[in-house]
Simulated scan of single mutants.
Amino acid sequence: MTSGPSSAALLLLADGRLPAGGHAHSGGVEAAVVDGGIRDIGDLEEFLRGRLATSGLVTAAFAAATRRSCPANGPVPDGIITELDIELDARTPSPAQRAASRAQGRALLRAGRAAWPGLSCPLSAPHQPVTFGIVAAAAGLSPADAALAVVYGAVSGPASAAVRLLGLNPLAVTALLARLSPDVEATADAATVLSERPPADLPALTGPRLDLLAERHRAAEIRMFAS
């Protein structure tokens, strides 16, 4: 992990209070609560472990790969960023998930430009992990930093949503996130190694239940979260 002044930037980008839209998305938790798949802390743990093993690894690898493709000081390369975005789109079969990812990407891009005015991006609405890699480069973070922050967000955001939706004990949820810490770090480490591959060879693991939950949530008449 990065040390020095950029460590504070990593904390800033991993903070759920960052105005990048993450607080408005439950990562499938709301739909899982509605269908009875998540009822207690044990169900939440299984759900988060599933996210880590599938979408967590994939999105972290793409964030790290994007960061690896961006020079620390210089223009963002259009071709490789577009290719990464297309490859991630192909790995996101749910239209609802694609829309949610791009919405968060736009919001993160706005926040990134406010914090680092020199930040540039060749796309108007890239997927959130791709945007994260670009912002990480502007912030002076490493590919490993980008992977760690994205993996952490893959579990911390849904965990926070579960507290709001089910009224779970926040202390118990904090303890759960602490238990998941070794798995979060292991997933981030694996994603960092995998990010050295060409875009077409990056992980393509799927989470069919997450896709179904996203589509079901989009069709719901009443919902607290955008996704």
Rank of each mutant, 00 (worst) to 15 (best):
R102H: 02
R197I: 00
V173G: 03
G157C: 02
T174K: 13
P182A: 10
P170A: 08
L168W: 02
R106S: 13
A154W: 03
S124C: 00
P129H: 04
A99G: 01
Q128R: 12
W116H: 13
S181W: 04
A147W: 07
A138R: 03
P199L: 09
V130Y: 07
A204R: 15
R179I: 03
A190P: 01
R102D: 01
P203D: 11
A200D: 12
A190L: 15
W116V: 08
L171C: 00
G140K: 02
P143Q: 10
S195H: 03
S160A: 15
I134F: 06
G118E: 11
P122R: 10
N169K: 11
P199G: 09
Q104M: 15
A186F: 04
A115S: 15
V163D: 08
L148C: 01
S101R: 11
P126R: 07
T187R: 06
A186Q: 13
P122W: 05
A139H: 10
L108M: 14
P198Y: 09
L165T: 08
Q128F: 13
A149T: 05
D183A: 15
T192A: 12
R197T: 00
A161K: 02
I134E: 03
G153H: 01
A111I: 10
S181A: 14
L202A: 03
R98Q: 15
A107L: 14
R164A: 13
P199T: 07
D189W: 02
A172T: 12
A138T: 05
L148Y: 13
A161C: 07
S101M: 12
C121H: 09
P182L: 06
S160E: 14
S195R: 04
E185I: 13
P129A: 06
A138D: 02
P170Y: 07
Y152I: 00
A100R: 08
G157R: 09
T131M: 13
G105E: 06
R106D: 01
A188P: 04
L141H: 01
A137W: 03
G112Q: 09
L176I: 04
P117L: 06
A115W: 12
V150K: 13
A161W: 03
G118Y: 08
Y152P: 00
Q128G: 00
S120E: 14
Q104W: 00
P203I: 07
A99R: 14
Q128A: 11
S181M: 12
D145C: 08
A107D: 14
A139D: 10
P170F: 10
G105M: 05
A136L: 01
R110W: 00
P143R: 10
C121D: 06
A115Y: 06
D201I: 00
L123T: 07
A175M: 11
Q128M: 11
L109T: 09
T131L: 02
P117W: 10
A125F: 07
E185K: 04
A204L: 00
V151A: 06
A114R: 15
